[in-house]
Lab assay of single mutants.
Amino acid sequence: MADYSSLTVVQLKDLLTKRNLSVGGLKNELVQRLIKDDEESKGESEVSP
């Protein structure tokens, strides 16, 4: 898992935009949104054959 907390808000928003996720909120919220997306993506890849 990436260390999103070391990134700037601009970098976080860029990552969120690329994933089609909301870019609104405080830095901590942006980090949590990326972590949640990582976990959901990981779960999907494990279920797929």
Results as ranks from 00 to 15, higher is better:
residue 39 E to A: 13
residue 10 V to C: 15
residue 36 K to I: 07
residue 48 S to N: 10
residue 20 N to T: 05
residue 42 K to A: 13
residue 48 S to V: 12
residue 14 D to M: 12
residue 19 R to P: 01
residue 43 G to T: 12
residue 15 L to C: 05
residue 4 Y to D: 02
residue 43 G to M: 12
residue 45 S to L: 12
residue 7 L to W: 10
residue 32 Q to W: 09
residue 12 L to M: 04
residue 15 L to K: 09
residue 33 R to K: 02
residue 22 S to W: 07
residue 24 G to K: 10
residue 45 S to M: 12
residue 13 K to S: 06
residue 4 Y to R: 01
residue 49 P to S: 02
residue 13 K to T: 11
residue 21 L to T: 02
residue 15 L to F: 03
residue 31 V to W: 05
residue 34 L to F: 01
residue 16 L to G: 02
residue 6 S to W: 03
residue 39 E to K: 06
residue 2 A to S: 15
residue 36 K to S: 11
residue 25 G to T: 02
residue 41 S to D: 09
residue 33 R to W: 00
residue 18 K to T: 15
residue 31 V to A: 07
residue 23 V to N: 07
residue 7 L to S: 04
residue 31 V to T: 06
residue 2 A to E: 15
residue 27 K to I: 01
residue 42 K to P: 07
residue 20 N to P: 01
residue 47 V to M: 14
residue 33 R to Q: 00
residue 29 E to T: 09
residue 22 S to F: 09
residue 23 V to S: 11
residue 7 L to H: 05
residue 39 E to F: 10
residue 33 R to Y: 00
residue 7 L to G: 02
residue 28 N to P: 14
residue 23 V to H: 08
residue 29 E to F: 00
residue 38 D to F: 03
residue 41 S to H: 15
residue 30 L to I: 03
residue 42 K to G: 10
residue 17 T to V: 12
residue 25 G to N: 04
residue 45 S to I: 12
residue 2 A to D: 11
residue 42 K to I: 09
residue 28 N to H: 13
residue 27 K to Q: 10
residue 9 V to T: 11
residue 1 M to K: 14
residue 32 Q to Y: 05
residue 19 R to G: 02
residue 40 E to Y: 08
residue 35 I to G: 04
residue 24 G to W: 13
residue 27 K to F: 01
residue 5 S to P: 06
residue 22 S to M: 13
residue 22 S to Q: 08
residue 5 S to W: 10
residue 6 S to K: 07
residue 20 N to I: 03
residue 13 K to P: 00
residue 32 Q to F: 00
residue 3 D to R: 09
residue 33 R to E: 02
residue 9 V to A: 08
residue 24 G to M: 12
residue 45 S to F: 05
residue 41 S to G: 13
residue 3 D to C: 06
residue 14 D to G: 11
residue 20 N to F: 00
residue 36 K to M: 12
residue 32 Q to E: 07
residue 8 T to F: 00
residue 5 S to G: 09
residue 12 L to P: 02
residue 28 N to Y: 15
residue 31 V to Y: 00
residue 13 K to H: 06
residue 29 E to L: 04
residue 13 K to M: 09
residue 31 V to M: 06
residue 12 L to Y: 01
residue 39 E to C: 12
residue 8 T to S: 10
residue 31 V to K: 06
residue 24 G to R: 13
residue 41 S to E: 09
residue 38 D to T: 02
residue 33 R to L: 02
residue 3 D to T: 07
residue 5 S to V: 06
residue 42 K to H: 09
residue 12 L to C: 04
residue 44 E to N: 14
residue 24 G to H: 13
residue 41 S to P: 13
residue 49 P to W: 00
residue 38 D to V: 05
residue 33 R to D: 02
residue 30 L to Y: 03
residue 9 V to F: 07
residue 30 L to F: 03
residue 36 K to V: 11
residue 33 R to I: 01
residue 7 L to F: 14
residue 21 L to W: 00
residue 19 R to I: 00
residue 8 T to H: 05
residue 19 R to M: 04
residue 13 K to W: 04
residue 15 L to Y: 07
residue 25 G to Q: 02
residue 1 M to F: 15
residue 34 L to S: 03
residue 31 V to F: 02
residue 34 L to H: 00
residue 4 Y to P: 00
residue 41 S to C: 12
residue 3 D to Q: 05
residue 36 K to P: 00
residue 11 Q to N: 07
residue 10 V to W: 06
residue 24 G to Q: 13
residue 40 E to H: 09
residue 49 P to C: 15
residue 12 L to E: 01
residue 6 S to P: 04
